[in-house]
Amino acid sequence: MLSAAEVKRLSMLARLEVRPEDGDRLARELDRILGFVRQLEAAPAGEIEPLVHPLDLAQPLRDDEVREQVDCETIERGAPDVAEGYYRVPRVIE
């Protein structure tokens, strides 16, 4: 069973805020899903090569040239808070 502390650590890693009153319910739900996927332990996969992706593709390279541009103003219009061409966030350095 996942502990409340583990759920808290996971949510910190995932940058999610779990309300204290939701901690137990969430721990139970995650535990049940993890218990379900744990049946993979018994699968006879040995040292078979992992399949990361269905296509065997090499990373294609292209010329480093400017092709299309969405202008900064358009991009900024979608941002919650911008100033002078920068995204604005709470002070990071005290």
Binding site: E41, A45, E47, I48, L51
Partner: peptide, 20 residues
């Protein structure tokens, strides 16, 4: 996450190849 990657993620990718 560290400590679980092999048991879950890597194992799932191996079984993914078996299924394919």
């Amino acid at each position: 996450s560290h400590g679980y990657y092999d048991a879950y993620y890597l194992k799932a990718q191996r079984v993914r190849r078996l299924i394919r």
